[in-house]
Amino acid sequence: MGSATAAEVSEVAERAPREKKRGCFLADAALRVLLVAVTVASVAVLVTSKQTKLVQATLPVLGTVMVPIDAKFTHSPAFIYLLAAMSVTCLYSIVSALASLLSSCKPAGSAAALLTFAYFDVLALGIVASATGAAGGVAYIGLKGNKHVRWEKICNNYDTFCQHVGGAIALSLAAAVILSILCHLSIFALYSKLRRSSC
């Protein structure tokens, strides 16, 4: 008797905010799909950033010759880290998009799912933010140079390469923003559940 009435009550309490909750879950799933797209685009743009230029060089026997020199993202560990971080985030976002779609079909026992999402979203946010910072720091020196330590800028020579790297960094920044919104959504859903039941 007691459990039956309690179920009835909880059903009444759930009915009103169900629409809102469904909307929340849809936004969550849509953002995760968007995150997949952004990370895939970032990886693609970074991988295709190779540029070859002919540079004048003076060799002892041959005299002045034109030597082709590559600019690749593998030349800097920061860009390799960015690639690894974006790949990991891409995999995570695929898995979490599937999980989010599955859990939106049965929103009853989703508090644990929300908590798990919040944990992993924050972790992914940390990884993406540090990778963005690292790549951005190196790319800034590549763009402006640093005369104190005599690190010459390279973006005046390798313009396409720099545009690709800049695009990848901008996309990873977008991924970080999306992840922070996702984190906010998970926490907010947990909190609104709590407010509905107590607080």
Partner: peptide, 24 residues
């Protein structure tokens, strides 16, 4: 919680940048 997460991302990006340039 939300501002903590944002601030953590901000600090980690600064750490990543400093570490990357420090390694160079």
């Amino acid at each position: 919680i939300v501002t903590d997460a944002l601030i953590m991302g901000f600090l980690l990006s600064a750490d990543g940048a400093a570490a990357a340039v420090g390694i160079i």
